[in-house]
Simulated scan of single mutants.
Amino acid sequence: MKGIGTDIIEIKRIKQLNHRERFIHKLLSEEEFRLYQSFQHEKRQNEFLAGRWAAKEALYKALGSYCDGKSYKDFSIMNDERGKPYLLSPTIESVHISISHCENYAVAFVIWA
């Protein structure tokens, strides 16, 4: 195993952001932003943003120095047809991502094997 990372965030922190648009454009890749825009309800948008924030924090922890000089936008996490998250870009072999949320929290776990 090359690295592991985990992160958890309260969804209400996303809901209460003062500079939401700036945060969104610093966090999401173009592909993720298109997916975010497809959600009709603010609740689902907040869950998505919290999940991506947690996933990218966990990704940074797992990948360590590989992330030096890279921003969150440089990483694009998408979902396959069954909903499983995966790292679309950059292409890094053996990165496994899990994202989950409940009413109050989003959590993510990343393994780089």
Score class of each variant (00 low, 15 high):
T6Y: 03
T6C: 10
T6W: 04
D7R: 01
K12F: 11
I14D: 04
I14G: 04
K15A: 15
K15E: 15
K15G: 05
L17V: 09
L17A: 05
N18A: 12
R20G: 03
E21W: 09
E21Q: 12
R22I: 12
R22G: 08
F23W: 01
F23R: 08
I24A: 03
H25Y: 09
H25M: 13
H25G: 09
K26T: 11
L27E: 00
L27Y: 07
L27N: 00
L27G: 01
L28T: 08
L28K: 02
L28W: 00
L28A: 05
S29A: 11
E31T: 13
E31C: 08
E31I: 08
E32P: 11
R34D: 11
Y36A: 06
Q37F: 01
S38C: 07
F39W: 07
F39T: 04
F39P: 08
E42R: 13
K43C: 08
Q45D: 06
N46F: 13
G51Q: 05
G51W: 06
W53K: 00
W53P: 06
A55C: 06
E57Y: 09
A58S: 09
A58L: 05
A58N: 03
A58C: 05
L59T: 02
L59E: 00
K61M: 06
K61Y: 01
K61D: 10
K61W: 01
A62I: 05
L63R: 00
L63H: 03
G64Y: 14
G64Q: 05
Y66F: 15
C67Q: 04
D68L: 15
G69L: 09
K70C: 10
Y72N: 07
Y72E: 01
Y72G: 00
D74G: 06
D74V: 10
D74L: 09
F75D: 00
S76A: 13
S76I: 01
S76L: 08
I77G: 03
I77T: 03
M78W: 04
D80Q: 09
D80S: 07
D80H: 06
E81H: 12
E81Y: 10
R82Y: 14
G83Q: 09
K84P: 09
Y86S: 07
Y86N: 10
Y86Q: 07
P90I: 11
P90D: 02
T91M: 13
T91G: 09
I92H: 07
I92Q: 07
E93Q: 15
E93S: 14
E93W: 08
H96M: 10
I97H: 08
S98A: 14
I99A: 02
I99E: 02
S100T: 15
E103S: 13
N104D: 15
Y105A: 04
Y105H: 13
